[in-house]
Nucleic acid binder design. Structure first.
Lengths: 268, 268
DNA sequence: TTTGTAGTTCCAAATAATGAAACTGAGTTT
DNA sequence: AAACTCAGTTTCATTATTTGGAACTACAAA
């Protein structure tokens, strides 16, 4: 992808290891990368040494390392969005009784940053950190619709347009039209475009200056409800999104921030 | 710390940004680093460009980037421990009704990888990814006790020995003695060594070859229970630790692993 | 023993990182 | 308005690091 020097290459290697959804051997990585043997080898050494990768000597495999978990923790708690949004998600989840998501845009994909699940208790990293397509999800479209022109063009052109269901929008033109509608209306819907039976409404989170920070959504299933029922939540979701946006903006210069991390650790 | 070339330096910068528990300006970073202006500047550029950092143009501040969250998700799901341990933690939490932790050792600190909270619902990243001291926590001591000699020496010498409470072990000698006991007995206790009123028992997770993978703990408070009551859980915790160890080992070559990630996404 | 496969090390050539110094530009003081 | 800060950005000759073909090792299978 990008190639800013040594650091860029190292990041590529990290992504590659992460892309295998399992512990991976040197040879496999070598095959799927353009790096020469020795070069890749040294990268793996260095990254392992740094804790960015972890190496299992028994099985001779690499996986993404624990240091990433540490750093991601910092990313989450320092983010200008997730910690602020947390209590709002709690409330929205309680009120609606449905699944609630907080997402941000990361290289034109949807990255789920937090979640409240209707049924089960929250599931740690196996939820947050997950990525999904932008062109066929509520949060994805809500976010793209509020990008500035240049960024929107880039985003639209970088979608895969894979047809997940009959209703998936599979062309730039169709997506653009929907985004236009979303922008004027202020919220996005996903009408089984990603998964059959799954519908959702989503609102963007914006600063007063109009910068798009992320999106929140409420998801339902066609088995339990129809679209009209789901759409009754739109005003509420929009208000919550506005509140989050306002609070996020308010932390202009936190100086001392009431750290989302300060909750008693009590862990031993 | 370590300095393997450009990559090591880049990782240092990431850590530095993460260490400020808030969005941080260029000048602040410059002050707290040894890098010359231009060098640091270029690192920040590149890392931001790569999504490892995120830059807020409004406030001119850097924070750890979203790409880290994505990568950490992969680290968690691909880890040979966390996904396997999950159902066991659920069970242990249900049975004991107490707070349960899964931890791994990361540069001789305790890194909490998963958690079940007695009272409240789970708290996302603000829990997993957190780090703590090893010399005065149950999981920390349980893990150190089962390191090989060289690694143990290193670990013991790298603790800070800050006195958190009256009961904190504050010397290498005292810690070594406790670790010796722990090793022979098979479990560790934390008797208010980290926080007053907080007690805990912890068992290491080992492969059959004796490699230490992590530890689990059950935590209680002196207000609700005494040590004897808590220690009745030791056999159970030990058994769970053994089971996790066995399963972790069993995934020698998963080929297709029943991915902890396969839970229906249903997110839009 | 030979052959093959997977991983590791070497070192001269190619490339990228370095950092002092100069520059910019928005805001402030004289 | 000119001079001055201060925070951030760019330049470029020098320096240090990365690079990768090829040679090597270790082990397993034929």
């Amino acid at each position: 992808m990008a190639g800013d020097g040594t650091i860029g290459k190292a990041c590529d290697v990290l992504d590659q290891v992460a892309a295998f959804a399992r512990p991976v051997r040197f040879a496999e990585l070598l095959e799927s990368s353009n790096f020469p043997k020795a070069t890749l080898y040294r990268f793996l050494q260095t990254l392992t040494n740094q804790g960015m990768l972890s190496y299992d000597p028994d099985r001779q495999t690499y996986t993404p390392g624990l240091r990433l978990v540490r750093l991601a923790h910092a990313a989450w708690t320092q983010s200008s969005l997730a910690p602020i949004a947390r209590p709002f998600l709690d409330a929205l989840s309680r009120e609606t009784g449905e699944t609630v998501h907080l997402a941000q845009l990361d290289s034109n994909q949807v990255l789920y940053v937090d979640k409240r699940n209707a049924a089960q208790p929250i599931e740690m990293y196996s939820q947050a950190g997950k990525v999904g397509p932008a062109y066929c999800t509520g949060v994805g479209k809500a976010m793209m619709a509020f990008l500035d022109e240049a960024a929107l063009d880039r985003a639209v052109s970088q979608q895969s347009y894979h047809r997940f269901t009959d209703k998936t929008l599979t062309s730039e033109a169709a997506l653009r039209a929907d985004l236009h509608l979303i922008r004027s209306r202020g919220y996005a819907v996903d009408d089984e475009e990603h998964e059959p039976g799954i519908i959702c409404i989503a609102c963007p989170i914006l600063t007063s200056g109009g910068r798009m920070l992320g999106a929140i959504s409420v998801t339902g299933s066609t088995e339990r409800m129809n679209f009209d029922q789901l759409e009754t939540w739109v005003p509420r979701v929009r208000r919550v999104a506005e509140q989050i946006g306002a609070e996020a903006q308010a932390w202009r210069f936190p100086e001392t921030r009431p750290s989302a991390d300060t909750d008693r650790m009590q862990a031993t």
